[in-house]
Write a protein that binds this DNA or RNA. Structure first.
Lengths: 225, 225
DNA sequence: TAATCAATGTGATGCATATCACAAAATTCA
DNA sequence: TGAATTTTGTGATATGCATCACATTGATTA
């Protein structure tokens, strides 16, 4: 299925800088797909010649660690997925899975490369994106390894509220096991700490519904223990 | 000091793809510097409008974590440093310090951007570099957080041997405290584990001189406990 | 060459958190 | 609607490792 990319309402900042001719090229060379929660978008270990554009929805990037699956980061639309893999290695080095219903476009790598070559502004934006990711990744890693569980959980919750849902009330799109993989803990600890936060009046938990009651406290927990 | 970039014997793969006119532009717009072990190359928190080219030597990228300094990765020449910062934020988000004597070139960001705009091949290589880094960073983080200390230490030692020094005998360019920051442990654990590996005949340690005696074992330790 | 400071070795102790082992909900599905 | 499966809650136990507290060695400098 190919809709017209010129009028796609879900452009990234980068995409909005493309000339019409490049957009037409995209239109002619992309495959649009509707996905359901849980569907795999990119599968670690498989061969890939596509860049994926996440048009709508929320996805998790995860990687098989030495022992358990680890969720590297959450990504919400609009965003390009799989760039590192496609340019870096051809074989997908990580998986991406939809955690909500989502729409994606598969774009041929060659076409993407051409567009990258021919649009300075687009190219710059994409590079900026890489830079931002690398920095984030440095910080995330330093935090994860140094902070205690409560701190990391607080971080993750703030991230969901501020970056992903832009609201202090949201539905956790992950099971506690997945959340544990994101925060580098055990499922049990997630359960316990969530209960603690609730008891302390920092958040209200009911099922997967989370409401942040006391953001200041949550930020404090994120910074200290 | 400006030497001629055309005949620089330390080009990266990317740089070797530049046209002469771009190289001349580099020649006219770079500042060459000789550094000594321990000298700071990039300082977290300071303003930056330069990309740094590490011509010769070995450097550590480190970042102030919530509690301790963390060494994110080791980089050896030839390599560009500080790209994420300059494009991503202007304020340096991490530090880079020479751990051996080194030579660096400071390149104005504007000039670098222009060159990036005008050389498709160079541009592609730099993007590839970003991709590779992102993937590495995913893997490193997953390993660090999941493996036990012995595994991480083994990893780090193998990394030094294979990637940095290309030899199974080398001089650790870091103190045990720094090594601990690289591997996410305490100084004491580094000391202990190094002694264990020595006792087990996997490596020979004398001062900072390390010789890998049984690489197979070391790889096994890296994979398991 | 003594004296000061930095880097390393090593035991004892405590703590955060993984793991185990279930019970209880909640969800899926037939 | 009931059975089966997944998800979640919670105590008890075990353990890897940080931290503390020194001793020792090695480097630096006056």
């Amino acid at each position: 299925m190919q809709s017209d990319c010129r009028h796609c309402p879900f452009k990234t900042k980068a995409t909005s800088m493309l000339c019409d001719c490049s957009l037409d090229q995209l239109t002619a060379n992309h495959l649009e797909l509707k996905l359901k929660k849980g569907d795999s978008i990119i599968k670690q270990g498989t061969y890939s010649t596509n860049v994926v554009f996440l048009r709508t929805g929320l996805a998790k990037i995860h990687i098989a660690g030495p022992y358990t699956e680890q969720i590297v980061k959450m990504v919400n639309a609009p965003s390009y997925l799989g760039l590192p893999t496609t340019f870096g290695s051809k074989i997908n080095q990580y998986s991406v899975t939809a955690v909500s219903d989502a729409e994606v476009c598969f774009i041929d790598l060659e076409v993407f490369q051409t567009i990258l070559d021919e649009n300075k502004e687009f190219n710059r934006e994409i590079i900026q994106e890489f830079c931002k990711n690398e920095l984030e990744s440095f910080h995330r890693c330093a935090n994860r390894t140094q902070k205690l569980i409560r701190g990391n959980m607080a971080d993750a919750l703030l991230d969901f509220a501020d970056k992903i849902f832009k609201s202090d009330t949201f539905n956790l799109p992950l099971s506690q096991t997945e959340f544990a993989n994101l925060v580098d803990t055990s499922r049990e600890s997630v359960s316990r700490v969530l209960a603690e936060f609730d008891k302390d009046g920092i958040i209200r938990v009911s099922g997967r519904q989370i409401e942040i009651l006391n953001k200041k406290s949550l930020i404090l927990v994120s910074q200290n223990g």
